[in-house]
Design a protein around this nucleic acid. Structure first.
Length: 569
RNA sequence: GCGUCUGUAGCUCAACCGGAUAGAGCAACGGCCUUCUAAGCCGUAGGUUGCAGGUUCGAUUCCUGCCAGGCGCGCCA
């Protein structure tokens, strides 16, 4: 890699300069790609921090560095500019050679050669409760998590996708009761459907299916708890099947669906609480009433508390409810601890912003259990505001009027949903307009990128019709690609592996979408100023190579995002 | 009240873990289709980066305090 070679050269020069200053700390060499063409192909800022150490002006330091530096052959010039930047210019031909690399590597360009051995990563995302269909907010988390998994795999990480099924606790009882009420109703009985029950139409469907499979009289005669268990299990299975189906519709599947109930059933939650107790981080006490919320009948209760405040949390957290069963928190620690025991070196959790208050307690718990290294990295995905023609779509879970992810995908299409969800950082809220996402114009970035890909395919078809063939890329003379637009494209393609690397390091998959949009923009700009198919055979072949490489990289980026790259539009 | 995320052009967002003249799209205005896809391109205009301090050679970026908005804050998951 050119960048590394340059960094090495500068580091060498740095050592040379610092010979007389044995106790000085050498600043890190950082190379950036300047935004402005006149600033060269790479720029280094080392002279500026070094100026302080050597007590000379940055310009003097830069000059001294240039005296001793031994550049690689491809460097044609380096000069000092601005407040002390060293601008480096490379021989152009050496950059355009990347086009040949891209064509031969094809879908592997930008990807790591193999799977690295720096550890296994567990990536948990979606984990929507199996009590109903996924809404749009879940969809954003799903797309973010899935794209991140693709990205991490692309740079060579060993990643497992995991879905945590919250199939335990009181909500299962509520779900079972909701279904049972609908079953009774379908049998013609008068029912009173309470506020707390799940109102959706899917509950009625599950009830109808269950009536097909089970004898209603027999169910009525059953012990209520046994019946609730049976119906609850069946309803959860039905909902999970629906969720998996909906995820399939946007191209997402998991390596493992992990059941919370299995943690309780196998005794691992209780084992974990015992372990914490023997570790001495559990005590019996009462919590102060919560702030900022009016609670009329707050009564302090003695309970088992996990001393999470010793590990960075705000208050200690209860492990067991008053009825003696474990809290959700206790099960979740057991779950994260289980991931640790399964040998994952790193955990990443993608959660909705409404779980933000939960991060510090889980991290505190994992710190207590395993030490700092096994704390999960938590990505909090902010809300999605669904609009139609700019007006908010009213959603009420209680009234059963929330828009499901499936409805949105069916209406606007998988590609538009996936790409639009990836155009912003997870920290910022996302406005998603149903009409805007369907429009096939500039307002919709997914078409902008896909259009570039389809346009490239069309040009290549045209070129072949005209009798041009690319042939062996190694025989193409890329030195004729000298226009401003061509050089921009080459530089852009060259930076793709670095862009992936950076995005992966920061767990910011949206950067891949940004990259694709910028590359598409550079291509469209090139297209309008340069003709690919001409009478000049040498130039035509060089440009065919160039746009094929552009199309390949757009396709590779879109693949990471789970978006298709069409040949025609 | 506490925690957390956000605040950049009229609107929606970028700005490469402190760097050079803060960039795109939409909306506005003016151009470009008898030649490879106009789902596109070129140009003009638009900014005290919420406010006030601080650290630094240098701050949209880091720190502190305010202001505004989102999310959350008993054994619900």
């Amino acid at each position: 890699m050119m960048k590394q070679a340059l960094e090495l050269a500068l580091q060498g020069a740095l050592q040379e300069l610092l010979k007389d200053h044995p106790d000085a700390v050498a600043p890190e060499v950082q190379l950036t790609r300047p935004k402005i063409k006149e600033h060269g192909d790479y720029a280094a800022n080392v002279a500026m921090p070094l100026a302080r150490v050597l007590k000379k002006s940055p310009q003097q330091v830069a000059a001294a560095l240039l005296e001793v530096v031994k550049w690689p052959d491809s460097v044609v010039g380096a000069d000092i500019a601005g407040p002390g930047f060293i601008n480096i210019r490379l021989r152009q031909a050496s950059e355009a050679e990347v086009l040949k690399t891209i064509i031969s590597a094809a879908e592997n360009y930008g990807r790591a050669a193999g799977v690295d051995d720096t550890g296994r990563i567990n990536l948990e995302f979606v984990s929507a409760n199996p009590t109903g269909p996924m809404h749009v907010g879940h969809g954003r988390g799903a797309v973010v998590g899935d794209s991140l998994a693709n990205l991490l795999k692309a740079v060579g990480k060993n990643v497992q996708r995991e879905y945590y099924i919250n199939d335990a606790g009181a909500q299962v009882g509520v779900l079972a009761n909701s279904v049972w009420l609908r079953m009774q109703e379908l049998q013609g009985e008068e029912i009173d459907f309470p506020d707390g029950a799940y109102p959706g139409e899917y509950i009625v469907q599950i009830a109808a299916d269950l009536l097909q499979q089970h004898d209603y009289q027999a169910l009525s005669a059953m012990d209520a708890a046994d019946r609730a268990a049976l119906i609850g299990r069946a309803a959860i299975d039905a909902n999970m099947a629906m969720i998996r189906d909906d995820l399939q519709a946007i191209g997402i599947s998991f390596d493992l669906y992990f059941s919370e109930q299995s943690l309780h059933a196998s005794g691992r939650v209780n084992e974990l609480i015992d372990k914490l107790r023997s570790d001495g981080v559990v005590y019996t006490g009462t919590l102060p009433p919560p702030k900022g919320k009016e609670i009329e009948d707050y009564t302090p209760v003695e309970q088992q508390l996990f001393r999470t405040t010793d590990f960075g949390d705000d208050v200690d957290r209860p492990l067991a409810k008053q009825d003696g069963t474990a809290t959700y928190f206790a099960a979740d620690i057991a779950y994260h601890y289980d991931k640790h025991l399964r040998g994952f070196d790193r955990m990443i959790d993608v959660w909705g912003a409404d779980h933000g208050g939960y991060v510090s307690r889980v991290q505190a718990a994992m710190k207590a259990l395993t030490g700092r290294d096994a704390q999960p990295d938590v990505l909090l995905v902010q809300m999605v505001n669904l609009t139609r023609d700019g007006k908010p779509v009213k959603m009420s879970k209680r009234a059963g009027t929330f828009v499901t992810l499936r409805e949105v995908v069916d209406e606007v299409g998988r590609d538009a949903v996936r790409f639009n969800f990836m155009t912003r950082r997870v920290e910022s809220q996302l406005d998603f307009d149903l009409e805007g996402a369907k429009q096939k114009n500039d307002e919709n970035p997914v078409y902008y990128v896909q259009y570039a890909h389809a346009r490239i395919a069309a040009i290549l078809r045209k070129a072949e019709e005209e009798g041009h063939t690319l042939g062996d890329p190694d025989d193409v003379d890329v030195s004729v690609l000298t226009s401003h637009e061509e050089q921009r494209l080459v530089a852009h393609l060259l930076s793709y592996p670095e862009a992936l690397q950076k995005a992966a390091e920061r767990l910011e998959a949206y950067r891949v979408a940004t990259f694709a949009m910028r590359l598409a923009a550079d291509f469209h700009s090139f297209y309008h100023k340069n003709r690919v198919v001409t009478d000049d055979v040498v130039l035509t072949r060089a440009r065919m190579l160039l746009i094929r490489a552009v199309g390949q990289v757009i396709s590779n980026a879109l693949t990471i995002l789970g978006v298709s790259a069409p040949e025609r539009m």
